[in-house]
Deep mutational scan, measured.
Amino acid sequence: DVEPGKFYKGVVTRIEKYGAFINLNEQVRGLLRPRDMISLRLENLNVGDEIIVQAIDVRPEKREIDFKYIP
Protein backbone atom coordinates (compact mmCIF):
# COMPACT_ATOMS: atom_id res chain seq x y z
CA ASP A 1 0.00 0.00 0.00
CA VAL A 2 1.18 3.49 -0.87
CA GLU A 3 1.15 5.91 2.05
CA PRO A 4 1.22 9.72 1.87
CA GLY A 5 4.56 11.15 2.93
CA LYS A 6 6.58 8.03 2.11
CA PHE A 7 9.21 7.86 -0.62
CA TYR A 8 9.15 5.32 -3.44
CA LYS A 9 11.35 4.34 -6.37
CA GLY A 10 9.47 4.50 -9.64
CA VAL A 11 9.91 4.45 -13.40
CA VAL A 12 8.71 7.15 -15.81
CA THR A 13 6.32 5.43 -18.22
CA ARG A 14 4.68 8.34 -20.06
CA ILE A 15 5.18 12.09 -20.32
CA GLU A 16 2.42 14.57 -21.10
CA LYS A 17 2.22 18.38 -20.91
CA TYR A 18 0.44 18.09 -17.56
CA GLY A 19 2.92 15.69 -15.96
CA ALA A 20 4.80 12.41 -15.96
CA PHE A 21 3.25 9.05 -15.15
CA ILE A 22 5.33 7.08 -12.67
CA ASN A 23 4.94 3.34 -12.15
CA LEU A 24 5.94 1.94 -8.78
CA ASN A 25 5.08 -1.56 -9.96
CA GLU A 26 2.69 -3.13 -12.46
CA GLN A 27 -0.40 -2.31 -10.40
CA VAL A 28 0.55 1.07 -8.94
CA ARG A 29 0.86 4.19 -11.07
CA GLY A 30 0.64 7.87 -10.24
CA LEU A 31 1.18 11.34 -11.65
CA LEU A 32 4.04 13.75 -11.06
CA ARG A 33 2.86 17.23 -12.04
CA PRO A 34 5.30 20.02 -13.01
CA ARG A 35 4.21 22.09 -9.99
CA ASP A 36 5.34 19.24 -7.72
CA MET A 37 8.87 19.07 -9.10
CA ILE A 38 11.62 20.82 -7.17
CA SER A 39 14.84 21.30 -9.19
CA LEU A 40 13.59 19.01 -11.96
CA ARG A 41 11.88 20.01 -15.17
CA LEU A 42 9.44 17.87 -17.12
CA GLU A 43 11.53 18.21 -20.28
CA ASN A 44 14.50 16.68 -18.45
CA LEU A 45 12.62 13.43 -17.83
CA ASN A 46 12.64 10.51 -20.25
CA VAL A 47 10.52 7.39 -20.44
CA GLY A 48 12.40 4.66 -18.60
CA ASP A 49 14.07 7.00 -16.08
CA GLU A 50 14.11 5.72 -12.50
CA ILE A 51 13.40 8.40 -9.91
CA ILE A 52 12.55 8.65 -6.24
CA VAL A 53 9.18 10.30 -5.59
CA GLN A 54 7.15 11.12 -2.50
CA ALA A 55 3.46 10.21 -2.38
CA ILE A 56 1.57 13.39 -1.48
CA ASP A 57 -2.05 12.45 -2.17
CA VAL A 58 -3.41 8.91 -2.30
CA ARG A 59 -7.01 8.29 -3.39
CA PRO A 60 -7.47 4.50 -3.44
CA GLU A 61 -11.17 4.74 -4.29
CA LYS A 62 -10.20 6.42 -7.60
CA ARG A 63 -6.93 4.50 -7.93
CA GLU A 64 -5.08 7.83 -8.13
CA ILE A 65 -1.77 8.88 -6.58
CA ASP A 66 -0.08 12.28 -6.81
CA PHE A 67 3.68 12.40 -6.41
CA LYS A 68 6.22 15.06 -5.55
CA TYR A 69 9.89 15.08 -6.54
CA ILE A 70 12.37 16.32 -3.96
CA PRO A 71 16.08 15.92 -4.75
Rank of each mutant, 00 (worst) to 15 (best):
residue 1 D to L: 14
residue 1 D to F: 15
residue 1 D to C: 11
residue 1 D to Q: 15
residue 1 D to R: 15
residue 1 D to E: 14
residue 2 V to K: 02
residue 2 V to F: 11
residue 2 V to D: 03
residue 3 E to Q: 15
residue 4 P to S: 11
residue 4 P to D: 06
residue 4 P to E: 11
residue 4 P to T: 14
residue 4 P to Y: 10
residue 4 P to I: 15
residue 5 G to V: 03
residue 5 G to A: 04
residue 5 G to F: 09
residue 5 G to Q: 06
residue 5 G to R: 07
residue 5 G to P: 03
residue 5 G to W: 06
residue 6 K to Y: 09
residue 7 F to A: 06
residue 7 F to R: 08
residue 7 F to Q: 06
residue 7 F to S: 13
residue 7 F to Y: 13
residue 7 F to W: 13
residue 7 F to P: 05
residue 7 F to G: 03
residue 7 F to E: 06
residue 8 Y to F: 05
residue 8 Y to L: 02
residue 8 Y to P: 00
residue 8 Y to A: 01
residue 8 Y to K: 00
residue 8 Y to D: 00
residue 9 K to H: 13
residue 9 K to P: 07
residue 10 G to M: 03
residue 10 G to L: 03
residue 10 G to R: 00
residue 10 G to D: 00
residue 10 G to A: 06
residue 10 G to K: 00
residue 11 V to A: 05
residue 11 V to L: 11
residue 12 V to A: 01
residue 12 V to S: 00
residue 12 V to G: 00
residue 12 V to K: 00
residue 13 T to I: 09
residue 13 T to S: 13
residue 13 T to C: 07
residue 13 T to G: 07
residue 13 T to D: 07
residue 14 R to I: 07
residue 14 R to D: 05
residue 14 R to A: 12
residue 15 I to L: 11
residue 15 I to M: 07
residue 15 I to D: 00
residue 15 I to Y: 01
residue 16 E to Q: 08
residue 16 E to G: 09
residue 16 E to V: 13
residue 16 E to C: 09
residue 16 E to T: 14
residue 17 K to N: 13
residue 17 K to E: 13
residue 17 K to P: 15
residue 17 K to Y: 14
residue 18 Y to S: 05
residue 18 Y to D: 06
residue 18 Y to N: 05
residue 19 G to N: 01
residue 19 G to K: 03
residue 19 G to W: 05
residue 19 G to L: 03
residue 19 G to H: 04
residue 19 G to S: 02
residue 20 A to P: 01
residue 20 A to Y: 04
residue 20 A to S: 03
residue 20 A to M: 03
residue 20 A to G: 02
residue 21 F to M: 08
residue 21 F to I: 12
residue 21 F to Y: 14
residue 22 I to A: 00
residue 22 I to H: 01
residue 22 I to F: 03
residue 23 N to M: 12
residue 23 N to F: 09
residue 23 N to Y: 11
residue 23 N to P: 00
residue 23 N to Q: 13
residue 23 N to L: 08
residue 23 N to K: 13
residue 24 L to W: 03
residue 24 L to G: 01
residue 24 L to Y: 02
residue 24 L to K: 00
residue 24 L to C: 03
residue 25 N to T: 12
residue 25 N to Y: 07
residue 25 N to G: 11
residue 25 N to A: 10
residue 25 N to E: 07
residue 25 N to Q: 06
residue 26 E to A: 15
residue 26 E to P: 15
residue 26 E to G: 13
residue 26 E to K: 15
residue 26 E to L: 12
residue 27 Q to C: 11
residue 27 Q to R: 15
residue 27 Q to N: 14
residue 27 Q to G: 12
residue 27 Q to T: 14
residue 27 Q to L: 14
residue 27 Q to F: 15
residue 27 Q to M: 14
residue 27 Q to H: 15
residue 28 V to N: 08
residue 28 V to R: 05
residue 28 V to F: 08
residue 28 V to T: 13
residue 28 V to W: 15
residue 28 V to D: 08
residue 28 V to P: 02
residue 29 R to Y: 13
residue 29 R to H: 11
residue 29 R to V: 13
residue 30 G to P: 01
residue 30 G to E: 02
residue 30 G to W: 03
residue 30 G to F: 04
residue 30 G to A: 03
residue 31 L to H: 03
residue 31 L to W: 04
residue 31 L to T: 04
residue 31 L to I: 11
residue 32 L to Y: 01
residue 32 L to K: 01
residue 32 L to F: 02
residue 32 L to E: 01
residue 33 R to S: 05
residue 33 R to E: 02
residue 33 R to Y: 03
residue 33 R to T: 03
residue 33 R to Q: 05
residue 34 P to M: 08
residue 34 P to W: 10
residue 34 P to E: 13
residue 35 R to G: 11
residue 35 R to E: 11
residue 35 R to C: 08
residue 36 D to M: 06
residue 36 D to L: 04
residue 36 D to W: 08
residue 36 D to C: 07
residue 36 D to Q: 06
residue 37 M to N: 05
residue 37 M to H: 03
residue 38 I to P: 09
residue 39 S to E: 15
residue 39 S to I: 10
residue 39 S to M: 13
residue 39 S to G: 15
residue 39 S to K: 13
residue 39 S to C: 13
residue 40 L to R: 06
residue 40 L to Q: 06
residue 40 L to N: 05
residue 40 L to T: 08
residue 40 L to V: 09
residue 40 L to D: 05
residue 41 R to C: 09
residue 41 R to Q: 13
residue 41 R to W: 10
residue 41 R to I: 10
residue 42 L to M: 08
residue 42 L to D: 01
residue 42 L to A: 04
residue 42 L to C: 03
residue 43 E to Q: 11
residue 43 E to M: 09
residue 43 E to F: 08
residue 43 E to G: 10
residue 43 E to A: 12
residue 43 E to W: 10
residue 44 N to V: 09
residue 44 N to T: 11
residue 45 L to G: 00
residue 45 L to Y: 01
residue 45 L to P: 01
residue 45 L to D: 00
residue 45 L to M: 09
residue 45 L to S: 00
residue 46 N to W: 15
residue 46 N to F: 15
residue 46 N to R: 15
residue 46 N to L: 14
residue 46 N to Y: 14
residue 46 N to V: 14
residue 46 N to E: 13
residue 46 N to K: 15
residue 47 V to E: 07
residue 47 V to W: 05
residue 47 V to G: 01
residue 47 V to F: 05
residue 47 V to T: 06
residue 47 V to Q: 06
residue 48 G to Q: 04
residue 48 G to H: 05
residue 48 G to S: 04
residue 48 G to I: 01
residue 49 D to T: 06
residue 49 D to F: 06
residue 49 D to V: 06
residue 49 D to M: 13
residue 50 E to C: 13
residue 50 E to H: 15
residue 50 E to V: 15
residue 50 E to G: 12
residue 50 E to A: 14
residue 50 E to L: 15
residue 50 E to R: 15
residue 51 I to N: 00
residue 51 I to V: 09
residue 51 I to A: 01
residue 52 I to V: 14
residue 52 I to K: 07
residue 52 I to P: 02
residue 52 I to R: 09
residue 52 I to T: 11
residue 52 I to H: 06
residue 53 V to D: 00
residue 53 V to I: 08
residue 53 V to W: 02
residue 53 V to M: 15
residue 53 V to T: 01
residue 53 V to K: 00
residue 53 V to G: 00
residue 54 Q to D: 01
residue 54 Q to C: 09
residue 54 Q to S: 06
residue 54 Q to G: 04
residue 54 Q to E: 07
residue 55 A to S: 04
residue 55 A to Q: 02
residue 55 A to C: 13
residue 55 A to I: 15
residue 55 A to R: 04
residue 56 I to E: 03
residue 56 I to D: 04
residue 56 I to Y: 14
residue 56 I to T: 10
residue 57 D to N: 15
residue 57 D to E: 14
residue 57 D to W: 09
residue 57 D to I: 11
residue 57 D to L: 11
residue 58 V to E: 03
residue 58 V to C: 04
residue 58 V to R: 04
residue 58 V to Y: 10
residue 59 R to G: 05
residue 59 R to S: 06
residue 59 R to A: 04
residue 59 R to D: 08
residue 60 P to C: 06
residue 60 P to I: 11
residue 60 P to Q: 10
residue 60 P to K: 11
residue 60 P to F: 09
residue 61 E to A: 12
residue 61 E to Y: 05
residue 61 E to P: 07
residue 61 E to C: 07
residue 61 E to F: 06
residue 61 E to Q: 12
residue 62 K to E: 09
residue 62 K to Y: 09
residue 62 K to Q: 12
residue 62 K to C: 08
residue 62 K to F: 10
residue 62 K to M: 12
residue 63 R to S: 12
residue 63 R to N: 14
residue 63 R to E: 11
residue 63 R to I: 07
residue 63 R to F: 12
residue 63 R to P: 08
residue 64 E to C: 06
residue 64 E to T: 10
residue 64 E to A: 07
residue 64 E to R: 08
residue 64 E to S: 08
residue 64 E to W: 14
residue 64 E to I: 11
residue 65 I to Q: 03
residue 65 I to A: 06
residue 65 I to L: 09
residue 65 I to F: 06
residue 65 I to H: 04
residue 65 I to Y: 08
residue 66 D to T: 09
residue 66 D to C: 06
residue 66 D to K: 08
residue 66 D to Y: 14
residue 66 D to P: 02
residue 67 F to R: 01
residue 67 F to G: 02
residue 67 F to Y: 02
residue 68 K to L: 10
residue 68 K to C: 08
residue 68 K to S: 12
residue 68 K to M: 13
residue 68 K to R: 15
residue 69 Y to I: 04
residue 69 Y to R: 02
residue 70 I to V: 14
residue 70 I to N: 11
residue 70 I to K: 08
residue 70 I to F: 12
residue 70 I to W: 13
residue 70 I to L: 12
residue 70 I to A: 11
residue 71 P to S: 10
residue 71 P to C: 09
residue 71 P to A: 10
residue 71 P to N: 08
